[in-house]
Design a protein around this nucleic acid. Structure first.
Lengths: 191, 191
DNA sequence: GTGAACACCGACAGTCGGTATGTCATCCGA
DNA sequence: TCGGATGACATACCGACTGTCGGTGTTCAC
């Protein structure tokens, strides 16, 4: 049980890698299974052997992207003992990811529409959102029942600011102003 | 130039009304053009005479829904002289719209995936950002250079909370909690 | 060696969005 | 008032797409 399994894993990985690229570039709806098959040099049967369908393939892609983001976020806040500082560090790191078109298209745009809210939220909670929520809770500056909505609002705000920066004609100045806004928001929200 | 135009407007309206219903009920992707055609008793040619395609039809539906929401939002804050109260009223009114399953599915879930991130943001900002920015500035609780990024963050936060409520398994409880979160956010941000 | 299990293959069916072309009532200028 | 122009469809058709299904070749345990 080695050569067979290895070959299978190789095919699967190739499929996920190619699909990640195409989904990010064209979006889910505008990416045909056939394009993925052709680009990955894999047959139709192989894909349907490994995944439940186009949607199953997307789920695998999403999982892979989220995992990658996760590890980088963890690395960004590693060794930070002050929860407020950890939160600030995580927020600034996340701003960088929203500028990443792979994360933006797959995680932020397509995932809710493709998976539906419940499934998307499940996945998201296990990753970025969960981290921010934990960090928010650790600061002990919010009543327990407000931690979850504030985590969502904070994430949304971060995405918005990141986009504002990315689209600005003067990204450097916009970055300063955006970061200042985020820090001011955190200051006010965390009292 | 009367009978022809009137007939055309009738067909168009019928198409938009039927599509609104089906898009809201099944989501954009799971609604086929043919289903809309059948339900509206309209031919393929008629649809493609009035709209650029399925996406064009969706845009028309979205525009109609947003316009309806807009007028109700304006009505909700009319006659409010205190800028802080006006801002709060507008925010809460918007949150209230998530009880409408049409707004939920079309504006909040499908629009980003169908129109793409950039176009969706454009539309969203035309309908909400201007009002929020003006209201925020009027409160005089923020330095001038932070009004714009805070308006963006607030709008994004409202959208996120609206989504959170919309897709919650228990919308009533989620609504209360979401409203509480927004009010607490405004309280903290506006000092 | 052999039979089961696995990874894969590719022709095919059904559906969908979009197009090309025809038709017919209505309008309008002479 | 009448004939061409125009608007508002109607319909047959096309290519593309997704998912299926019976089969094939390789690998592995015994």
């Amino acid at each position: 049980m080695n050569k067979k399994a290895e070959r299978g894993r190789l095919t699967r990985d190739q499929l996920v890698a190619t699909a990640t690229e195409l989904f990010a570039e064209r979006g889910y709806e505008d990416t045909s299974i056939e394009a993925v098959l052709h680009e990955a040099n894999v047959s139709r049967g192989a894909l349907y052997h490994h995944f439940a369908g186009k949607e199953g393939l997307f789920e695998a892609v999403l999982e892979a992207v989220e995992t990658r983001v996760d590890s980088q976020l963890v690395a960004a806040v590693a060794g930070q003992s002050d929860p407020v500082e950890a939160l600030r560090g995580g927020c600034l790191a996340w701003i960088g990811f929203v500028g990443d078109h792979v994360v933006r298209q797959i995680v932020l745009i397509d995932a809710p529409a493709v998976l539906g809210w419940e499934r998307w939220r499940e996945v998201d909670q296990q990753h970025g959102l969960g981290m921010i929520r934990a960090a928010l809770r650790a600061t002990r500056r919010l009543p327990a029942e407000l931690v979850d909505p504030f985590a969502h609002m904070l994430l949304a705000s971060l995405g918005e600011i990141a986009l504002l920066i990315a689209r600005s004609p003067d990204p450097d100045a916009a970055l300063d102003n955006g970061v200042a806004a985020i820090e001011e928001l955190l200051r006010r929200v965390l009292r």
